[in-house]
């Protein structure tokens, strides 16, 4: 505990670095996954291919992906962009399926009714389908958020600064509290982001009552 208090500024600095890697990846995964899921639902024969195909990306181990990606991106292994793109890919692997299922769960009758009262395809998507799929989309996003936060640490073995640096430093110098602090602060960060997402959900979807998903 004394070690953690002594090194609190460093830990907080690393927490911020951690967040700056994870948050853009989580946001990008969400923003890319929803249109992909929407398109996959529209073109029915493609749905299974797109959904399983992106799901397969999750089978790719994270460390090798961090190393292979720079060839495609033209970045260095230690670039933050490299890490963010890799994390976005893992986020997509989880999010495309849950977004496709969420959008699919919107009642077909509601969809037909909104078309019948004159909604255009775009207006129907943003004002009918998206809000109705909202709670299920949020559930998917929360899973992506937690798993992204825990995945970031792996990039520390390549020398990218994050809470994972507490693991590599702690291991190399034999400091147990450093590793414990890394695990604890990763959990705290994941929890904070999760609470933030839940709060954002309450704010944007006030009609969803507590207890119902």
């Amino acid at each position: 505990m004394a070690w953690i208090l002594d090194h609190l500024p460093r830990i907080l600095e690393l927490s911020l670095a951690h967040l700056l890697l994870a948050a853009p990846a989580i946001a990008a995964a969400f923003l890319v996954a929803v249109p992909i899921a929407w398109a996959a639902n529209r073109v029915r024969p493609l749905r299974e291919i797109v959904v399983s195909g992106t799901g397969l990306l999750y089978a790719v181990p994270s460390l090798p992906l961090f190393i292979v990606l720079p060839i495609i991106l033209g970045t260095g292994v230690r670039d933050t962009l490299n890490v963010i793109v890799a994390l976005t890919i893992f986020g997509l692997a989880l999010m495309v399926r849950s977004a496709a299922d969420a959008l699919d769960s919107v009642d077909g009758g509601v969809r037909l009714a909104s078309t019948a009262v004159g909604y255009s395809a775009a207006l129907r998507f943003f004002t009918v389908e998206l809000p109705l799929a909202g709670p299920a989309l949020l559930a998917g996003l929360r899973v992506v958020s937690v798993s992204t936060i825990s995945l970031v640490s792996v990039s520390a073995v390549l020398g990218v600064q994050s809470l994972g640096s507490l693991f590599t430093d702690g291991f190399e110098r034999g400091i147990v509290p450093s590793i414990v602090a890394g695990i604890a602060f990763t959990a705290v960060l994941a929890l904070l982001l999760d609470l933030l997402l839940v709060a954002a959900g309450r704010l944007t979807m006030p009609w969803v009552k507590g207890g119902r998903r």
């Binding site: 970031v152 809470l163 291991f171 890394g182």
Partner: peptide, 19 residues
């Protein structure tokens, strides 16, 4: 299951290795 998803694998491995 949820907790393990949040657990950083690198942290778990390095911690076990130190002990």
């Amino acid at each position: 299951t949820g907790m393990v998803r949040a657990l950083p694998t690198l942290g778990l491995i390095t911690l076990a290795a130190l002990f």
